[in-house]
């Protein structure tokens, strides 16, 4: 019988817990109206960035395409000409497509980029009615003219990119460009 009494007390405790929970404020954030603030390093949809003067940061180096484990990036580089100086370097990306259905949001492209041109931002509302609508092109990726943000680069790398990156011409780069961080070279004599 005392076991039964103990059981009854346990039942009462359980009931009181659920009742007290009922009086608590729900933790739900009602989504479309209210949105949760994501951490700065959230890896959502990609954004291509610009410099202050409106030129594109992307120099069409194909490093991101090469590093992408999912093969989600497709780039067609083109030469910059005197009349048509699209990016800061010698070349620019004429076509820049990201297949959001293939992308695994690993962020390797962001790490590989020598000019901090591509970043993964907080936009996680990635959905569409057709496959085509999720193959996004340069127009959708590029931030609008007149804006020059760094995006999550600042969150990943507290030091802002050096001003010399503005003049990146492909002649020198660092291990940071391929996602290894700014480490001293291990092999003596090896160039950087």
């Amino acid at each position: 019988m005392d076991e039964v009494i103990n059981d009854l007390i346990a039942l009462g405790k359980g009931l009181s817990i659920t009742f007290r929970n009922m009086l608590q404020k729900p933790v739900t954030i009602t989504y479309p109206e209210n949105k949760r603030k994501f951490p700065a390093r959230t890896r959502g949809r990609h954004v291509l960035h610009r410099y202050e003067d409106g030129r594109e940061r992307c120099v069409g180096c194909l490093l991101c395409q090469g590093t992408c484990p999912a093969g989600a990036i497709y780039i067609e580089p083109a030469e910059n000409t005197k009349e048509n100086q699209v990016s800061a370097g010698e070349r620019h990306a004429r076509v820049f497509d990201v297949d959001l259905l293939r992308c695994i949001y690993c962020g390797h492209c962001e790490l590989a980029c020598p000019t901090n041109a591509i970043t993964l931002e907080n936009n996680t509302a990635i959905a569409g009615y057709t496959r085509e609508s999720l193959l996004i092109h340069k127009e959708e990726l590029l931030e609008p003219k007149g804006t020059a943000t760094l995006g999550s680069t600042q969150a990943w790398d507290p030091k802002p990119p050096s001003p010399s990156a503005a003049e990146f011409d492909g002649s020198e780069t660092s291990s940071a460009a391929v996602g290894q961080g700014n480490r001293p070279s291990r092999q003596p004599g090896a160039g950087h």
């Binding site: 659920t18 929970n21 009922m22 729900p26 933790v27 009602t30």
Partner: peptide
């Protein structure tokens, strides 16, 4: 609604 509140949710609204 009530079960939702007991689980800190909101329920159909």
């Amino acid at each position: 609604r009530i079960v939702a509140r007991m689980q800190w949710r909101v329920g159909p609204n």
